[in-house]
Design a protein around this nucleic acid. Structure first.
Length: 836
RNA sequence: GCCCGGAUGGCGGAAUGGCAGACGCAAGGGACUUAAAAUCCCUCGGUUCUUACGAGCUGUGUGAGUUCGAGUCUCACUCCGGGCACCA
């Protein structure tokens, strides 16, 4: 063997693996399955270190599981629809498809250079009709079930470019292309009724013990279940119309001193009609309508409102209360109208102070008087307390009053108890070209008609002219738009909206189980064998949207009979970002590191090793070029050790030594110690990988190599050599998931046939791990004063006796009173003393 | 504003309530070499005392607390990062 030159051996092994199809899997009922999945990438053009890290973590884990004997599904694909392809198309005058496929080819080459063990026969590309036609089928089914529907909704709109803008295309409230202030526009859009599943998605959070707690917390908060009541307030001087509000605090209803309604509320216009305030209110509504969604939420909490001129009547005490239109009330949450209680809500309090609205206390804390002065009431009192100023409810606890008042409201038919969710339906319409066409045709006679299953896929036409201005390019392709109605045969026109790319990534994990399958898109038997995904790995940025949408889709596909089980991902690992120079690595900041450079200089094994060694997977990784060198040296040290001792491996050729029962009698003490250390390391590496402690697993292997280097190989006997081979084999096998190329090479160099990656994971010789001596630390008043090597199993009495005989211990307890002695078996003796 | 994280040497990081700083990087020293690179070995939180061997004190963002014992648990605070849909 020669010097470690990674690129040569990596190419050699990559082609050997490909030739033998080592990573292809089929359903095998005899083996336990394991589905390991990393989030698929958007083919932006080049792999970045974030990808390298994500896929290295996944590959270590998948290879480890294979060595543990599982039937491992480890697939890969491309999330290949989306906005960047359209932008590139406009900028470089290249078709989005061409740009995308070119990027995929380049990135696939890089992925293969990294030596990731994917079953490439299962590769999917979401922009291919063989993938998205199934999505169109699911859409039609959802439409028929009422899970897909259309409603009016607002989008960012640039008046100059006459185009809809994604949030990303709005910068500081301005159009990124022309710089003009953007406005909003109401258009008909498609939605998925994810809210139908709100409760199940919430309940499911408690059935996912393999997910990080913080991701579940975020999802729960996002779904945002709240219990409250809807109450109808009459409007003074208006007969049939009532103003319906939603509140989570019915206990504060006697403290209402004004009402806030959303500017877009359908009643706003009529409430101010003919009043002196009409002009002002309409101007306010117009201003809010024109502010973009982003701006409106990014205003930094400036609360604004105008009095509409109308009054509502509190149904519980008949008080007249002014109605305000307010910028902070949202039309798409609750009922779009809020009863405002400044005495017990901080936001209402601030608003009341600003507009000089009275503040009324209805819940009293111990320190409060029933009618506190302004000086006394510096802020809203939001805690529970005793009810006051609330007629027959006075004197009871406010928490009890919530249900009492709700019951009262229901019994008097003034409103009803309700459960609300913050979760909104998922808007999937995009006025974009590079996406999955929504399979619907509009006919003057028959109305909206879904495309029949036999006519799917609705193929995205290739001859689109992409520009940054004007309507969706699809709407300008006559051959696409003008089609016959599937129902009556008369002329109709196609829907030109395409779907949000989150739709593609919501079910790809299921498609991988049978990626070529016809005619249903998901093969039930194969999906049932492989799903759920046992380990899902991806960035924390997908903690809410992607993961929630995929969970939703899984439930929908389950209800359609495609899938079994309620959840798609059993265990989830959210990995941190790759940081350089204090910032997230990104093209725009110019602090990217090219993986090709690392691979060419140090090899894929080093790149893989470093990306899992430098930080624990869940944490952000601070990239440092020097650190890479250390991992390269580590592989080099193993390489040289094996190379320098080839005579030993030759001598041992054909002798199986792995985890043998070695008779300790003939071994020299150092070798005996080394064997024990090796099995301890194996135990640690195994349990570390199981819990994704990949950085400490690598550190443990480095320690083992340091120990191996302490052995003087020239002085060891024949039995010692056997053990040395065992030790080295265990090391190489442990290294295999991390650095598969070098490991395969070294495995053969040790005189073994076959591939290390197909070898079974070594097992721990528990006997070798047992220690005959234990190190006992002696603490006096919490400070370490002595360390003692004591034979394992020594009695507490004897340990104490030895400790108290220690010179240093004596020094620190001399002349002092011993208050307490605590012994922790085989570990520590703690002595508490007092006095001087 | 709300929610979720985090803070340990010059740096990345390690530590079931039990020896703080494993492992790696950087730095310094030595061996090998004509030399350099590579490699191999040693030292490496701060500080005081000691010729030395060594011994002591101090130290995990700040301040309290619980405990024989706290980086780890509790409370209050400071700073940093991430997320957000002003949620009635």
């Amino acid at each position: 063997m020669s010097d470690y030159s990674p690129r040569e051996i990596e190419k050699k092994w990559q082609s050997a693996w490909a030739k033998d199809n080592v990573d292809q899997v089929t359903e095998d009922k005899k083996k336990e399955k394991y589905y390991c999945l990393e989030m698929f990438p958007y083919p932006s053009g080049k792999l970045h270190m974030g990808h390298v890290r994500n896929y290295s973590i996944g590959d270590v884990f998948a290879r480890y599981k294979k060595m543990r004997g599982y039937n491992v599904l480890h697939p890969f694909g491309w999330d290949s629809f989306g906005l960047p392809a359209e932008n590139a198309a406009i900028k470089n005058n290249i078709h989005p498809a061409q740009w995308t496929y070119k990027n995929i080819d380049e990135m696939r080459r890089q992925m293969k250079d990294m030596g990731f063990g994917y079953d490439w026969t299962r590769e999917v590309m979401t922009c291919h009709k063989d993938y998205y036609k199934w999505e169109q089928l699911f859409f039609v089914k959802m439409l028929n079930k009422g899970l897909a529907y259309k409603k009016k909704s607002t989008v960012n709109w640039c008046e100059d470019c006459k185009t809809v803008l994604a949030n990303e295309q709005v910068q500081d409230g301005k159009c990124w292309r022309c710089g003009k202030n953007i406005t909003t526009k109401e258009i008909e859009q498609w939605f998925f009724k994810i809210t139908n599943y709100a409760q199940e998605l919430l309940d499911g959070c408690d059935k996912l013990p393999g997910w990080p707690e913080r991701v579940l917390t975020m999802q729960k908060n996002w779904i945002g279940r709240s219990e409250g009541a809807e109450v109808d307030f009459a409007i003074k001087g208006v007969k049939d119309t009532k103003l319906r509000i939603y509140t989570t605090r019915p206990d504060t209803i006697f403290g209402v001193t004004f009402m806030s309604i959303a500017p877009e509320h359908p009643l706003t216009a009529s409430l101010c009609k003919g009043k002196p305030q009409e002009k002002e209110v309409l101007a306010f509504v117009d201003k809010i309508r024109r502010t973009s969604k982003i701006e409106r939420t990014a205003e930094g909490g400036v609360k604004e409102g105008v009095f509409t001129g109308s009054y509502a009547i509190n149904p519980l005490n008949n008080e007249e209360i002014p109605i305000y239109a307010a910028n902070f009330v949202l039309m798409d949450y609750g009922t779009g109208a809020v009863m405002a209680v400044p005495g017990h809500d901080t936001r209402d309090f601030a608003f009341a102070k600003k507009y000089n609205i009275p503040i009324k206390v209805v819940i009293k804390a111990d320190w409060m008087s029933a009618n506190p002065t302004d000086a006394e009431l510096k802020d809203a009192y939001v805690e529970p307390g005793i009810m006051v100023n609330s007629l027959e409810f006075n004197g009871i606890n406010s928490e009890l009053a919530i249900s009492k008042i709700s019951d009262y409201i229901e019994s008097k038919k003034l409103g009803k108890k309700t459960i609300n969710y913050r979760l909104k339906d998922w808007g999937i319409s995009r006025q974009r070209y590079w996406g999955c066409p929504i399979p619907v045709i509009y006919c003057d006679k028959c109305g909206m008609v879904p495309v029949p299953e036999k006519d799917l896929p609705v193929v995205l036409p290739e001859d689109a002219k992409l520009t940054a201005i004007g309507d969706n390019p699809l709407s300008k392709i006559d051959s696409f738009v003008n089609v016959k109605c599937p129902k009556c045969g008369g002329m109709g026109h196609r829907e030109t909206d395409t779907m949000d790319t989150f739709v593609e990534s919501s079910w790809y994990y299921a498609r991988y189980t049978a990626p070529k399958d016809e005619p249903s898109g998901i093969n039930k038997e194969k999906a049932a064998y492989w799903l759920p995904v046992d380990q899902y790995i991806g960035g924390i940025e997908h903690a809410i949207m992607h993961l929630l949408y995929a969970r939703f889709f899984h439930k929908v596909l389950r209800d359609f009979g495609y899938l079994t089980g309620d959840e798609p991902f059993k265990n989830l690992l959210t990995q941190g970002m790759v940081i350089k120079d204090g910032h997230k690595m990104s093209k725009s900041l110019g602090n990217t590191v090219d993986p090709d450079y690392i691979i060419n200089k140090y090899g894929a094994d080093t790149a893989r090793l470093f990306s899992v060694f430098a930080a624990p997977p869940e944490k952000d990784l601070d990239w440092n070029d020097h650190g890479v060198e250390g991992c390269y040296r580590f592989i080099g040290r193993i390489w040289r050790f094996i190379d320098n001792n080839s005579s030993i491996w030759n001598e041992m050729k054909g002798i199986s030594v792995l985890s043998q029962n070695v008779s300790a009698a003939n071994l020299s003490p150092e070798i005996k110690k080394l064997r024990s250390f090796t099995h301890k390391t194996l135990k640690k590496v195994t349990s570390d990988i199981d819990i994704f402690g990949l950085n400490t697993a690598v550190a443990a292997m480095m320690e083992l190599v340091n120990e191996i280097y302490k052995i003087d190989v020239s002085k060891i006997n024949k039995d010692d050599k056997k053990v040395l081979k065992e030790v080295t084999e265990i090391l190489v096998l442990m290294l295999t998931p991390f650095a598969p190329h070098a490991s395969c090479e070294l495995w053969n160099e040790l005189g073994n046939d076959g591939m290390a990656i197909q070898h079974i994971w070594p097992s721990v010789d528990e006997k070798a791990v047992i220690e005959d001596h234990k190190l006992i630390v002696v603490q006096i008043n919490g400070k370490v004063r002595a360390k003692m090597e004591i034979p394992t199993g020594t009695s507490e009495e004897k340990v104490k006796k030895i400790a108290f005989a220690d010179v240093n211990v004596k020094k620190f307890i001399e002349g002092k009173e011993i208050k307490k002695v605590i012994y922790v078996e085989g570990k520590l003796l703690s002595i508490a003393v007092s006095g001087s």
